[in-house]
Simulated scan of single mutants.
Amino acid sequence: MARTILIVDDHPSFRSSARRVLEAGGFTVVGEAPDGASGYTAARDLRPDVVLLDVGLPDADGFVVADRIKRLADPPDVVIVSSRDPSDFGPLVSGCGACGFVAKADLSGDAVAALLP
């Protein structure tokens, strides 16, 4: 059975390309959100298996949003994504409850799946 995923990123072009890549990789995209507030609401309401969450959102830090999402009842797995290098974030990825990080340039269904428990 395909895992469901929510894409949270402020760039429509990235959301569109991520949707194509993830669907080709076996995920079912159940929603998209352009900012942290709508991303949290969508995670709560749509109950995806996974949230692909950008670090740089217009209204919130992605690490703060990840922490909020992980506090939901039966929370989804969270994978952080950014165009920046993962070394820029140090322990912030694991500290927010995310199961890992994927650089936007390296995004694939396999890369996300490899991070999931």
Rank of each mutant, 00 (worst) to 15 (best):
V79R: 00
V93Y: 01
S87A: 12
A98C: 08
L92I: 04
P34I: 07
D45Y: 02
A60V: 07
A111D: 05
G109D: 06
V51L: 01
G95D: 05
V65G: 04
S87K: 15
A37K: 13
D45G: 06
G36D: 11
V112Y: 04
E23Y: 01
P34K: 10
A113C: 10
F27I: 00
Y40K: 04
L92R: 14
G31H: 02
A43R: 09
V51Q: 01
A105R: 13
D10P: 04
A24S: 11
V30Y: 00
V30W: 01
D54E: 09
L52C: 02
C96K: 15
D59V: 10
L6Y: 03
A42D: 05
P48Y: 02
V78Q: 04
D54N: 13
R20F: 15
A113I: 09
F101S: 10
C96H: 14
P12F: 09
D77G: 12
V64F: 15
G109C: 03
S94A: 15
D77T: 10
D49I: 00
A24I: 02
A103H: 09
R71Q: 07
P117F: 11
D77P: 10
R20T: 14
D74N: 15
V64K: 15
L72A: 08
D10E: 09
S16K: 11
R71S: 01
D85Q: 14
S94L: 12
K104P: 04
I7E: 03
G31I: 00
V65E: 03
V81N: 01
V102F: 08
M1I: 01
A60Q: 11
A103Y: 08
G109Y: 02
I5E: 01
A24D: 06
V112M: 07
T41Y: 05
D54A: 07
D67C: 08
V102W: 10
G25N: 03
L22H: 07
L57D: 12
G100K: 12
D106W: 01
A42F: 06
G90M: 05
D67M: 11
L57E: 12
D67N: 11
D67F: 08
H11M: 14
D59C: 11
I80K: 06
D35A: 13
R47I: 00
F89S: 05
V78A: 03
D88F: 15
V29M: 00
S82V: 06
V112K: 03
